[in-house]
Design a protein around this nucleic acid. Sequence first.
DNA 1: ATGAAAGCGCTAACAG
DNA 2: CTGTTAGCGCTTTCAT
Lengths: 349, 349
Amino acid sequence: MTKVTMADVARAAGVSKQTVSRVVNGNNRTSKETAARIQKLIEELGYRPSGVARSLATNSSRTLGLIVPALNNPYYSEIAEGAEQTAWEEGYNLLLCNVLQNPEREWAALRSLEDRGADGVIVDTPQLPDSKLFELLRHYKAAVVIGRSVPSSVAGNIVVDDEAGVGLALEHLLARNRRTIAMLSATSAYASGRVRKRAFVHFLEAHEMLDMKLVVACEPNDEASFEATVQLLQKHPSINGLVCFNDIVAAGALKALRSLDVRVPDDVAVIGHDDIRMARLLNPPLTTLTVSKRDIGVNAVRMVLDRIGGYNRNTKVVLSPELVVRESTVGKPPKSTTTRESSLRPFAE
Amino acid sequence: MTKVTMADVARAAGVSKQTVSRVVNGNNRTSKETAARIQKLIEELGYRPSGVARSLATNSSRTLGLIVPALNNPYYSEIAEGAEQTAWEEGYNLLLCNVLQNPEREWAALRSLEDRGADGVIVDTPQLPDSKLFELLRHYKAAVVIGRSVPSSVAGNIVVDDEAGVGLALEHLLARNRRTIAMLSATSAYASGRVRKRAFVHFLEAHEMLDMKLVVACEPNDEASFEATVQLLQKHPSINGLVCFNDIVAAGALKALRSLDVRVPDDVAVIGHDDIRMARLLNPPLTTLTVSKRDIGVNAVRMVLDRIGGYNRNTKVVLSPELVVRESTVGKPPKSTTTRESSLRPFAE
DNA sequence: ATGAAAGCGCTAACAG
DNA sequence: CTGTTAGCGCTTTCAT
């Protein structure tokens, strides 16, 4: 607990702080012998460089911030995991901020990270309005925004092509002769919910199959979804396909269908979004759209690090979802687990 | 992005840095007028105090570290969520470190947090040996350890009474006439796995029902559990009760039993641990042991903050699990299509 | 009520 | 190869 400083080591070694500093930072411009001697002293005295002092002197903390709306959502925790891992590998620390769906806390987290000297931030905040977000991001050396489009001057950008994903889902259902397809969307506070709903509507409109009465929204949790599904199917028993905002919603729907004695997929085929771990453990295992959440995190960190380094080449990454086909749409036999590789489609603006 | 320092504000206001400092820190020993004037300047210039510089000067960062083995595990992400929220409310930042089940990274995270000047740490690392852990913790003003017992001189302590929990589970099974009870434990690297296994063994020994061949270990993921369950039941078809290390393992087991056409709970009653969100969505919904993960996080932060403040009163918190009874042990309740199944509400026996 | 000086522990920019 | 001189932006004494 006693604090050993660089000066202590220098004194013990009979050299200047600078020399110790050079050894600590692996700067070879010191003689082998002194380097070795200092190294030994460092261990003996148990010296640990102070990151705080170093940050102040270098104006760089080797710390990144990641702001997510909820960590109990597997979607975000997987992003966090990928980001954490990558940051670690690059010698950076990740300050993870969980803002609990609260725009005020999103704002505060951004300020707080700034004060703590974070070199860059990665933000996945569905709620904070663009104007405020952009203003806050100005204060950082580098930033990356996930999940909504931003100009490359403001931040790097990682988005998921939900439009394409919903297209895949609907084509899959159509190919299996489902013609009365409903959607369990999220309440409008969710940006991706809006996108997925719009894509759904457009697609079915184009196929002249749209019935807006079959498009309902609920809070994205299994309880709300359970209720919504029960009501939806009681009102519209002819439904034979169901696209859900995410896998949690789909799980609630499956449970509801079970309680209604509606067979899946025979009576109703169900598709989720995200492929969280639970998806394959449900009964029946859930067909779902997925992108690699880990990859989002990994790419976000790479991108923000690039930007910190002054390379603004790759300003946007669009990830295309893939359909993981399981029994909730095709029934028992086809045991073929779709291999899902990350489909990374980076392009410069 | 331009850096406004305290000196800039002081200059603009025609006062010294110290006066600005006093205003920033709410020290009233400044005249109302100058305080107001400075406050105005601060807003106008967009001055933000540097947390880094302050940390260096005060030797305190108002930052806490939380080290968990895996964030994709809902168990830990809920702890993190509780901790995050509480830290935030107390004006602290939470540096979340995900160490991916890797003891080397557990070690590195502890060092890294120390270098970054974290005031305290909360550690839930199943793998790092006590001796190493204790040594590392010495460097912190305060520490709290979750999930394994430590002396109060080393750190505050939050543990779950797994012994009692396993007792609840087994009594429940016994009461339902299960006499051939197996356990799917975790590999020995997991401290709580060891505790739960020991409790299981002791309990059944005391009831003269122990058969060590029915106690098997696997990696705590659904795939390993699937395999282990298949093998276990093929070798011992008489098994009619199964206690699992956690809910993920139980989910894998349920899937395996389904594939073996073993009925749950009629043929085998299954109990998990943790009550992660997925538990009630499985088919059948899973009976499981639970404590409030959020509370663990909340308590941990409170405790470490107490210790930073010099109060070492509350050195240990023991949380007792409750058994949430669902269909995986008691079968299906009478069905109703209008009301939701009541199994959403946890209750203690 | 306010200011001056001295540092927190480190690195940067020159010297030599 | 190594040392010296200055800070980084803030807080802490101590004066005034």
